[in-house]
Computed example of a mutant assay.
Amino acid sequence: MKWTIYLLTLVSLVSCTEIKTKKNSHITPVSFIEEVPTLDGRPIENFWNLLEWHPIDQNWIGGPFDHDDFNGKYKIAWNRDGLYLLLEIVDDTLYKKSKDPLKLWWNDDCVIVYLDEDNSGGLHQFNHNAFTYHVALDGNVADLGNDKNPKLYNDHIKSVHETEDKTTYWEMFIKVYPDTFLDDSEIKPVVLTKNKKLGFALAYADNDTSTERENLIGSVFISGENKNNGWIDASVFGTLELVE
């Protein structure tokens, strides 16, 4: 009887551990930069040339698409103030229908930044255990607040993009806020340091003038049928590891 109780307790402990473990084990090293890029949508700073491209190629929502319709990749760097992001997006149609940045923002063409400051994973739909920032073509940044209503977080991410023909370069500066952040609070972003790990993923919502987005293409592989789970569960994010 004692052995039965012991085994049941052990199974329970293991199960609890598995629940808390992140589902995605992908790790991306991120280089430190001293030079601060000018956010102008023109990646002319030399350090951008030294960084590795990472693909945005996982089809989370929608049917097959060809290379001319969409292809994307990104580079990322850090300093103590935050993350610096460069995206190269080839898209034959840039579409923004909603004039109200807090209505149906997910159906317009936009970049989505998924960020979990302490890489803890877990649910975050209506709290700031993690963020799902939707960065619109007009620069507005939307996510759900802790009151379950949509809000703008334009002071969290600054972005500029420039388009030539079908190619758009986005440059972004991202402040990293802790999971203790509350809307309308005075909580400051964290200071980033070497060896810190953050939960992170990117996606691009692609819409070629339809009533709803046609594809959501992400940067990390997500197993299972429901691949659009990042806006609810940060456990599917990949991991950034800050290095020098």
Rank of each mutant, 00 (worst) to 15 (best):
K188L: 12
S12F: 12
I187D: 06
P101C: 04
T209S: 15
D68Y: 14
T38G: 10
L137W: 10
I76K: 07
I56H: 05
K166G: 08
P178D: 03
V113F: 10
D118E: 14
N228S: 09
D118P: 03
L115R: 03
K166T: 12
D40Y: 08
Y177S: 12
K194E: 14
L87D: 03
F126K: 07
V36L: 12
N146C: 03
V113Q: 05
I19Q: 11
V30N: 10
S98E: 09
K151G: 01
V190I: 15
W170I: 13
P64E: 15
E52M: 05
V36H: 07
I56Y: 05
N129P: 01
N119W: 00
K75C: 13
K23N: 05
E244V: 08
V113I: 15
Y74D: 08
S15E: 03
E34V: 07
I222E: 01
E164G: 04
T132V: 02
T211M: 11
D66E: 04
R80H: 09
F32N: 05
L7I: 13
E117N: 09
L102G: 03
H134T: 07
N49R: 14
D118Q: 12
E241W: 00
L198I: 15
L104P: 04
D116Y: 08
N49A: 09
D165R: 14
S159A: 03
W105G: 05
L216W: 01
D179T: 08
D57L: 05
V135S: 05
E241C: 00
N140Q: 11
S235H: 03
F173G: 06
P37E: 14
Y133Q: 06
L86G: 01
P43Y: 04
D165G: 09
S25A: 13
E45R: 12
V190F: 10
N215V: 02
S235R: 02
L7S: 11
E162R: 15
G139K: 08
L192R: 08
N107D: 15
D147P: 01
N129E: 05
D92I: 08
W78H: 08
K196G: 03
S25Y: 11
G41A: 12
K166A: 11
D69C: 15
D81S: 11
K197C: 13
V220G: 06
N226W: 08
N229S: 14
Y95N: 03
S12N: 07
E88I: 01
K197V: 12
D108A: 11
N46C: 07
H67C: 09
T4D: 11
D69Y: 15
F181V: 02
F221H: 15
L115Y: 04
V113K: 06
L7G: 02
D69M: 15
N154P: 01
H134M: 09
A130Y: 06
E162T: 11
T168V: 03
D155S: 01
D100A: 10
I187N: 08
K22Y: 05
T132A: 10
S31K: 07
T211F: 12
Y169I: 13
L137S: 03
V176A: 04
K73V: 10
T163L: 04
L85K: 04
K97A: 15
M1N: 13
K227H: 04
L240K: 04
T21Q: 05
N127L: 01
N146K: 02
G121V: 14
A142L: 08
A77Q: 06
N129M: 02
V236D: 04
Y153I: 00
T163G: 03
A203Q: 10
S223Y: 02
V111G: 07
D206K: 10
Y95F: 13
E45A: 14
V135R: 07
